[in-house]
Design a protein around this nucleic acid. Structure first.
Length: 584
RNA sequence: GCUGAAAUAGCUCAGUCGGUAGAGCAACGCACUCGUAAUGCGUAGGUCGCAAGUUCGAUUCUUGUUUUCAGCACCA
């Protein structure tokens, strides 16, 4: 999909279209007041105060009509400049404009305005020459949005739209939006029986169906093996803990809003854990550690429970009951770089295996202007941040820095991806933590015999199995590679009377070879069963007829192809094993 | 959580300006015994998300509630 923001000409066009939108809204709602109308990756929006009016879908159509009308009139877009004082005077009845103007520092600032016909708006520009150029646009949706992005503020009406230079580009974009809906993991999840949900279970608590469970198990096996090879020690810990545990960790004070309410049993108070770091801290603390033992890597596929905001839950992507691909790495301060490098390398390795190419590394750093709110150890921060940068540069990884986005306990690296529908999400994460080991009084004995405090790296490669599965479903459009596919092989006998015996023989043979095999011997036409095998996106469909039975061979058709290949039984098994091993 | 929209058969959806609903697919039965994306005919299937209110009567109107969807906010 086109990124409007990255195309200078399209940016100007879209920004001009935002003004056109504002003008049309002003015509239809004379009392409307305007906040900002920026260009975003997929077009533009404008935040508008409409008083008590709420924009419905019908209204969008009306506004669009008005925009077309204004565009046809073809007024020129004229720039003129005024002083800050003049601007304040001119827009004195508009608190939003006054707010914008007041925030411009210098008293003698020159402020530019753009006028098209009867509409003038404050704007830095640039814009297209005339509104006539704004022809191929579409208003996409409307919704509420908090003023200045702060939930404490009033909610404005936001209208989203997009504009192109020609009809074809616009249509292609609209088609791409439709396509994206088709790859939404919530649709695929339903179509392929991967997960379900139920009101009685609750919001944000999906049930993994047998097909989903197979995918998840494969993911678990995959990452477990990688982690084992890297020296991780896997553990199991309980999902419920005392409130005191989370008071010790600090979650009770800082994360309570996202936790399910505590429960009192007899005299004790328990919580469902929102994360399992405290447990891993205690496991580390269970024995005395030498500096020689570090890093110590504790991993767990941990069920965690978070009371996510009701408006935030989404399919498998954002849930209230999740399974983290979690690990805590306890390192000496001098090992931060080396261990961080291993984590990033693992992320790169995994993404390569899954063919994930479209992602962004985000390095979240401390805000140097506001060090107060962070864990207090300047040297630790400076050294760690430098190390993280160094490693990323060394690995030749492209990343961007998000200043002020670090957690208060340490800097972090997140990997962000785009789901089929909706805003970017974090898949993998690696967070440094200077604080938690202190809260649990964790130490190691250093070479000089003194006790030192380790640094912890929280890391999750898949993030959660839930979210990663959602992402894989969208990446693959549900066409899973053989090693992940719930059903790998579907056997379709041509005729039950003559081919069922050999079909059963093959089913046994292939099941015993370790493959996930089904047989579709229903009394249906062959083409009917072939069609279903395709719609279920089963990688290999075997057709068993006279030829195969007589020659004791296997004829298969790969998903998405129309030709059939015939192999001996041994060769077929070797071929499937090879494909699985190579994660094809 | 906020602003809005939606919820009808297992699935996808139509419909009722207030008189308890219909299609396609799926399921089941019968016939067809078939070589690569839908054989035909028939049967069954719904407290119209849940609760209350208005009404002679509510799936339809009103209110509440749950869930879903879009966006915002949140994401130690």
């Amino acid at each position: 999909m086109i990124n409007i923001k990255e195309d200078e000409k399209l940016s100007v066009l879209n920004h001009s279209c935002a003004h056109l939108l504002a003008q049309a809204v002003k015509h239809l709602y004379p009392h409307a007041m305007f906040w900002v109308g920026p260009v975003i990756e997929e077009g533009f929006y404008y935040d508008i105060d409409l008083g008590d009016n709420v924009i419905s879908e019908d209204d969008l159509v009306k506004i669009e009509k008005e925009m077309k009308k204004i565009s046809k009139d073809g007024k020129r877009i004229v720039r003129h400049e005024i002083s800050k004082g003049e601007a304040l005077e001119q827009f004195k009845d508009d608190p939003y404009k006054v707010d914008l103007i007041s925030r411009m520092d210098e008293a003698d600032t020159i402020i530019s305005c753009y006028t098209q016909g009867d509409f003038t708006d404050l704007c830095r520009g640039p814009h297209v020459e005339t509104v006539k150029e704004l022809k191929y646009f579409k208003l996409l949706k409307s919704s509420g949005a908090y003023w200045k992005g702060d939930a404490k503020n009033k909610m404005l009406q936001r209208i989203y739209g997009i504009c192109f230079y020609n009809e074809e580009d616009l249509n292609n974009h609209l088609i791409a939006l439709e396509d994206a809906k088709q790859r939404d993991h919530r649709k695929i999840g339903k179509d392929l029986d991967i997960f379900m949900s139920h009101d009685l279970v609750g919001k944000g608590m999906p049930l993994w169906l047998p097909n989903g469970a197979i995918i998840r198990k494969q993911l678990e096996n995959y990452i477990y093996e990688k982690e084992q090879k890297m020296g991780y020690k896997h553990v199991y810990t309980p999902c419920v803990g005392t409130v005191d545990l989370y008071k010790t960790s600090g979650h009770w004070d800082h994360y309570k809003e996202n936790m399910f309410p505590s429960m009192k049993v007899d005299e004790e108070e328990f919580v469902l854990r929102p994360m399992n770091c405290p447990h891993h801290m205690l496991i580390y603390g269970n024995e005395l550690h030498s500096y020689r033992d570090l890093p110590i890597r504790i991993g767990e596929f941990a069920a965690d429970f978070r009371y996510e905001a009701s408006g935030a839950v989404k399919g498998l992507e954002r849930v209230r009951c999740m399974c983290q691909n979690d690990a805590h790495l306890f390192v000496r301060p001098d090992q931060i770089g080396e261990e961080f490098k291993k984590v990033v390398s693992l992320i790169l390795d995994v993404y390569k295996d899954f063919g994930i190419k479209d992602y962004k590394f985000r390095l979240s750093l401390r805000d140097p202007e506001d060090t107060e709110k962070y864990f207090d150890d300047d040297d630790m921060w400076n050294n760690a941040e430098a190390k993280l940068r160094e490693v990323l540069n060394e690995l030749g990884v492209e990343y961007f820095e998000a200043v002020g986005e670090a957690a208060f306990y340490g800097p972090k690296l997140d990997v962000e991806v785009k789901p089929a529908v909706g805003p970017e999400i974090t898949l993998s994460t690696c967070q440094l933590d200077f604080l938690l080991p202190r809260r649990f009084e964790l130490t190691y004995v250093d070479s000089d015999g003194s006790k030192k405090i380790p640094v912890v790296l929280h890391r999750a490669i898949f993030g959660t199995f839930d979210r990663f599965t959602a992402f894989v479903l969208e990446e693959t459009k549900g066409i899973l590679p053989l090693w992940l596919a719930p059903t790998q092989i579907n056997i379709v006998p041509v005729n039950n009377e003559y081919h069922l015996d050999y079909s059963k023989e093959l089913q046994d043979l292939l099941s015993n070879a370790g493959f996930r095999v089904e047989m579709d011997a229903r009394e249906e036409k062959l083409s009917y069963r072939m069609r279903e095998s395709q719609t279920r996106k089963i990688p290999l469909t075997l057709i068993v007829g006279d030829k195969e039975r007589d020659d004791k061979t296997i004829s298969y058709r790969l998903f998405g192809t129309t030709e059939t290949t015939t192999l001996s039984q041994e060769d077929f098994i070797a071929f499937v094993k090879d494909s699985i091993n190579n994660r094809k």
